[in-house]
Design a binder for these strands. Structure first.
Lengths: 284, 284
DNA sequence: TTATATACGAAAAAAATTTTCATTCAAACA
DNA sequence: TGTTTGAATGAAAATTTTTTTCGTATATAA
């Protein structure tokens, strides 16, 4: 009726507050077992939940579908295991093409999962914190120093004073110069890199606001940082999670960058025109 | 009956030869307009095709579904436009969450598209070339030098002598030292970066084998390099293609790396055990 | 307290799906 | 050639599922 399109789960969440008790029961069930609904009739579902078919039907209408069928179809479109077979390990007989597909899919999966976690987390706070920073500095060691340098290249265009250095001694020195109004972004896949943890220590002494990007929630970095952000990358045989994790880190930083740009425009720091120009530059 | 799972379209194709005329008509129709079926009843479909419901029903059974419903659901799961609305531009009213989603989706799309192009192209040759190289060097300038450094970090673990330097003078010097048996990988998003083109000139003089990674087929870099590889990233308002392009570059290099590792194992350079260890290392 | 609205289920109605059965047609066979 | 067999198909019946209608209960506001 109102609308035919996708996004069943999102729609349920949106309408959740407006639902009656019984309807909330239905909503909970669907959110919990969306895959099952797909192969269940309205009778069955109503019976399982101990209510009348019509109650379920009204629920479908309420969240904006033409009926139960329409909801089922939308759900089916939505559920489909996001990117399939991705997690498959690379096997010995695989040809170049197959290996490439698996590598790419693994990277895509990392992005998908990371995004999922990002939107629920403290990402928004991270954006605000950076927008209000007097100065932002990126820290990373080893492979992560490359990500830090990349972030520097991006953020230099926000107009916020930014800095990054791949030398660990310089990093320590630089960290000791930061203050309360500054923000440090620390990148470490494992969250245990000694050099970076050491930098974190200096930063905390100086009350610098800290944002961490890591793959592991239970790590020194993510536990001690003010705002932890997480990548989600899984390891498989013949494929280090570290590879995908870099893609996810990069994307988090992309996202931070664009959001900061937009936020700054809204605060009137820059005109829309200049902003677009800055973002859309071809060469980075 | 036989099976409940996905892959409706594939299944239709598989069974195609065994189908009767009427059934072929149905198959053709579904393959042509899968999205429509989703919102069509079996009656409707039968009528549209000028046949009986039961014929359509039997078709569903024949290709392995429990019935029409089941087929519809499978189709719905399958159709869902791979990653949707991705290309949507970022709008002024978008909140942090929406912007983040768009950024990530844009990156995922870049990977998807890049992979598509990769498998048809000269990627396999690139892998072979690197495997047989005496020495591999990565070149990039500006933002791309970061990608080159990243590649260096990865490939150092292949055991092949690799090198990368972000200073353009050093790059020129280094390029002049390479010879016929060496391979140079040049990275430039636009394919027009002056420094990198200059390096390419030196390399060609020395008959060094060259692999280029760029977003544009009509660019000095991709036209003059021995083996061009392409990223696919589209620009939108408020979102430079350069951002996504880096993710794609990184993934191409990931893929090259893993493939090279595997190829070398097959050539007996390293044991499977050592190889896995090398790839699976947590910290990069 | 009464009126009104909302939530819900029961049952009826409608629609869609699935099954059954009869017919046609063509190939196989006597 | 006539008959049999079996696959393909459609018509109609049976069944299941979905949707609508309507009545009751409960809560809320006047």
């Amino acid at each position: 009726m109102i609308n035919e399109n996708q996004y069943c789960l999102a729609r349920i969440k949106t309408h959740y507050v407006k639902l009656s008790d019984k309807e909330k029961t239905i909503a909970d069930y669907i959110l919990k077992h969306p895959e099952e609904i797909i192969h269940t009739s309205i009778n069955q579902l109503a019976e399982d939940l101990g209510m009348a078919d019509s109650t379920v039907f009204r629920f479908c209408k309420r969240i904006g579908f033409k009926g139960y069928q329409a909801m089922k179809i939308a759900l089916a479109s939505e559920i489909v295991t996001p990117i399939k077979d991705i997690h498959e390990t690379i096997n010995e007989g695989d040809d170049v093409r197959t290996v490439s597909e698996k590598v790419f899919q693994s990277n895509m999966k990392a992005l998908e999962d990371t995004l999922q976690l990002l939107v629920g987390g403290s990402f928004e706070l991270a954006v605000k914190t950076i927008v209000n920073a007097k100065r932002v500095e990126f820290f990373g060691s080893g492979g992560s120093s490359i990500i830090a340098m990349d972030a520097y290249h991006k953020f230099i265009r926000t107009g916020i004073p930014v800095f990054a250095n791949s030398d660990s001694h310089m990093q320590l020195m630089s960290a000791s110069q930061l203050g309360e109004q500054d923000v440090a972004v620390l990148i470490s896949h494992t969250g245990t890199t000694k050099d970076t943890i050491q930098v974190l220590g200096v930063l905390k002494e100086n009350n610098v606001k800290t944002i961490g990007i890591t793959n592991f929630a239970k790590s020194p970095l993510s536990e001690e940082v003010d705002i932890p952000l997480y990548t989600v990358a899984e390891e498989t045989d013949y494929r280090s999670e570290a590879l995908s994790s870099r893609i996810a880190q990069l994307s988090i930083l992309d996202s931070l960058f664009i959001n900061v740009m937009i936020a700054r425009e809204e605060e009137g720091h820059t005109s829309l025109h200049k902003m677009r120009n800055a973002i859309s530059i071809k060469r980075m």
